[in-house]
Structure formats: C-alpha cells, structure tokens
Computed example of a mutant assay.
Amino acid sequence: MFKDTLLQWAGGKSFNNMQGKEWYRLLTGSFFHQNILHLLGNAYGIYFVGVILENKIGSWNFLAIYLIGNIAAYIVYAIFSNYTEGTGASPGIYALIACIIILHLYNKEFLNLQFGNWPVNYTFAYLLLGNFYGMGAFIVHILGFSFGTIITLIFLFLNVVI
C-alpha cells in the first residue's frame, strides 16, 4: 500500500496521470525501482559505468549525460505511451554506455576497453540483458542510448570531452 502510494506520488511518468505542476515525476521516478533486483542491477550498472567513464569526462558531464538521458527518454516515451509505472535509472545508464562506446570508437587510447575485468564485463552484460525486462524497458533503453549518443556527439563537437 505504501509503495503504491509512493510510486503514484513520485514515480509513474505518464502525462495522463500528472497534474499541472508534477513535472518533477520525470526526475524522481528515476530513483524508484520495481523490486530489489531492479535496484541492485541499476546500482551495479551505474557503479561500473562510473568506474569506466567518470574520471575521464568529469563528474558534471557524467551527471549531465545521466540526467538528460533519463528525463529525455521518459518525456518521449510518455508522449506516446501511458507509462504509469515508469521507474528506474536505466535510460540514463544506457545514455552513459552510449558515451563509452562513442568515446572508445573516437579514440581507443582515451578509453581502453578490454573484456576480462568487472567494469567492462558487467557493462556489456547490462547493455544486453537489460533489454529482456519487457518492451517498455527495451524502448526507454533505446531512447536513453539515443539521447546519450546525441549528447556525446554535441560534447565532442564543443570539445567538452576529450
């Protein structure tokens, strides 16, 4: 009961359910999760992505890509779907994974990625396995990845990263 009330108040990014000034749901829903497995998967995801990327691009760029990836993905998805149970940080994590891939392709020495260590192995597994959580998750992951790609390319163009 409490969980449902809390999710209804702070999560659930459907524009159909939002009242006039409840725009904060597009941000707060990223901090709510469906269950402990969902929370742990995203916690490890953000940790290992951070180990790979944060010291290379800086905390503020990392945060910007993460937040924009989450919020933009949920806005686009909410426009086209009644996304009442929208929770989780995964679109932002997928945005950061897009940044990792683009920066690695742009300059292999800047991000030297090799399988065989936990951060790279977990991030790759997260990238693949996270899409089996349902069609809604698959779509917001693609949206997060897309926005991460756009943001990273803008950052490269403006010489914000590398």
Rank of each mutant, 00 (worst) to 15 (best):
Y24V: 07
R25Y: 10
R25N: 07
R25H: 07
R25K: 15
R25D: 03
L26V: 07
L26P: 11
L26W: 06
L26N: 09
L27Y: 06
L27N: 00
L27Q: 00
T28V: 01
T28Q: 02
T28H: 02
T28K: 01
T28F: 08
G29P: 02
G29I: 05
G29R: 03
G29N: 04
S30H: 13
S30I: 13
S30D: 13
S30N: 15
S30Y: 05
F31H: 13
F31R: 09
F31N: 10
F31Y: 15
F31V: 12
F31T: 11
F31D: 06
F31I: 15
F32M: 11
F32G: 10
F32T: 09
F32Y: 14
F32P: 02
F32L: 15
F32N: 03
H33F: 15
H33N: 06
H33G: 03
Q34M: 14
Q34I: 15
Q34N: 13
Q34Y: 15
Q34R: 15
N35H: 13
N35Y: 07
N35G: 10
N35R: 09
N35I: 06
I36E: 07
I36W: 14
I36A: 12
I36S: 07
L37M: 11
L37N: 11
L37S: 12
L37Y: 13
L37H: 08
L37K: 11
H38F: 12
H38S: 09
H38G: 01
H38D: 11
H38A: 03
H38K: 07
L39N: 00
L39M: 09
L39A: 09
L39H: 05
L39F: 15
L39E: 00
L40P: 05
L40T: 12
L40E: 03
L40C: 04
G41L: 14
G41D: 07
G41F: 15
G41C: 10
G41H: 02
N42F: 00
N42L: 05
N42G: 07
A43P: 00
A43Y: 00
A43I: 13
Y44R: 05
Y44P: 00
Y44M: 13
Y44E: 05
G45V: 09
G45E: 01
G45P: 06
G45Y: 09
I46P: 08
I46C: 00
I46A: 04
I46Y: 02
I46W: 03
Y47I: 01
Y47P: 00
Y47E: 02
Y47D: 01
Y47K: 06
Y47M: 09
F48E: 11
F48L: 10
F48M: 10
F48P: 03
F48R: 06
V49S: 03
V49R: 01
V49G: 01
G50A: 03
G50P: 03
G50R: 07
G50D: 01
V51P: 06
V51G: 05
V51R: 12
V51D: 14
V51N: 13
V51M: 14
I52V: 12
I52M: 06
L53H: 02
L53I: 06
L53A: 01
L53K: 04
E54Q: 14
E54K: 13
E54G: 04
N55E: 14
N55H: 14
N55C: 08
N55Q: 14
N55K: 15
N55I: 12
N55T: 15
N55G: 12
K56Y: 11
K56D: 09
K56F: 12
K56C: 05
K56W: 02
I57H: 08
I57L: 08
I57M: 05
I57C: 04
I57K: 08
